[in-house]
């Protein structure tokens, strides 16, 4: 018996409908579980008091501060490096073997998994350069890890700046650098910001590369040479060592909410840009 193609078509359509909602449902369920299990334990005291007794009691204040220090300092170094690279690749050179090699380097860095960044940061910054488990070692490792994202998104952003703007700027006898700083960068700004926000999101959620470079001390880091603990590392230790399920869920909720919040801002900026140019 031959099954009619139209019948197959209907079955496939129903199947795909069901399956797409199933897939999206799983992902929504993940967020929902974290939200409902975590929210009863989440309050201002949890956010503004530091962990006591390995995290069994108290809050997560020192880990929030640790996360903010790590992320802000990494972004502070990675942004000029990444945007500078993107400007170099798009404005200062023609496509050649040299840009090809640099692009290859960036692509390769992007593909290296975070545990290998952790391994490298550990042997290079912590051991060979003698930094020990410190905020500094963590910052430098995370800087290298997020660099490729910043370069790629900045390059895309700079490429979307219309050619006319540059031509007008040059015709007013502006130099290349003046054109870049006064015309190209302001116009590519929102796109670059999107890349930075996405990198912030990645750094906030990172564990493997952070735990072996910044360590996991629960004290508030007061200098670059102090060890410290980020929220993601704290959550990992709470969950893995079964210290406290309640605290683990609450920490996960803060972690997921901050990352979703950061990513939503990133997409909001990106949408504004794409709607401006299309």
């Amino acid at each position: 018996m031959r099954i009619s193609p139209n019948f197959v078509d209907k079955i496939v359509k129903i199947g795909l409908n069901f399956q797409a909602f199933f897939t999206v449902g799983i992902l929504i369920a993940i967020v929902a579980v974290i939200f409902f299990k975590g929210s009863p334990y989440l309050n201002l005291e949890f956010i503004f008091s530091s962990p006591e007794d390995m995290g069994r009691h108290g809050g997560i204040f020192s880990t929030i501060i640790g996360t903010i220090f790590l992320v802000l300092l990494s972004i502070f170094i990675a942004t000029p490096l990444g945007v500078g690279t993107a400007i170099f690749l798009t404005e200062y050179t023609k496509e050649s073997w040299f840009t090809k090699i640099i692009r290859f380097g960036v692509e390769s860095l992007a593909g290296i998994p975070s545990i290998l960044y952790g391994l490298f940061g550990f042997i290079f910054f912590v051991v060979k350069l003698g930094m020990g488990w410190s905020l500094m070692a963590g910052v430098l490792t995370i800087t290298i890890m997020i660099l490729p994202t910043i370069i790629r998104t900045s390059e895309e952003a700079v490429k979307t700046v219309p050619r006319n703007l540059r031509i007008v700027s040059y015709s007013l006898s502006a130099t290349k650098w003046e054109t870049v700083t006064k015309v190209v960068l302001p116009s590519a700004g929102p796109g670059i910001l999107t890349g930075i926000m996405l990198s912030v999101g990645r750094a906030v959620g990172e564990t493997a590369a952070v735990i072996f470079t910044m360590g996991s001390s629960l004290r508030l880091p007061t200098s670059l040479m102090d060890s410290g603990r980020t929220m993601a590392v704290h959550f990992y230790i709470l969950a893995r060592e079964g210290i406290s399920m309640e605290k683990a869920y609450a920490t996960a909720l803060v972690l997921v909410l901050s990352i979703l919040f950061i990513n939503i801002i990133a997409y909001y900026i990106m949408n504004k840009v794409t709607s401006k140019y299309s």
């Binding site: 959620g205 564990t207 969950a239 997409y267």
Partner: peptide
Amino acid sequence: LKPALELLAGIPSVVYGFL
């Protein structure tokens, strides 16, 4: 759906492991 899915790509791996 497209941005919603991409947002979810940002959920840290430790959270997946925990669940």
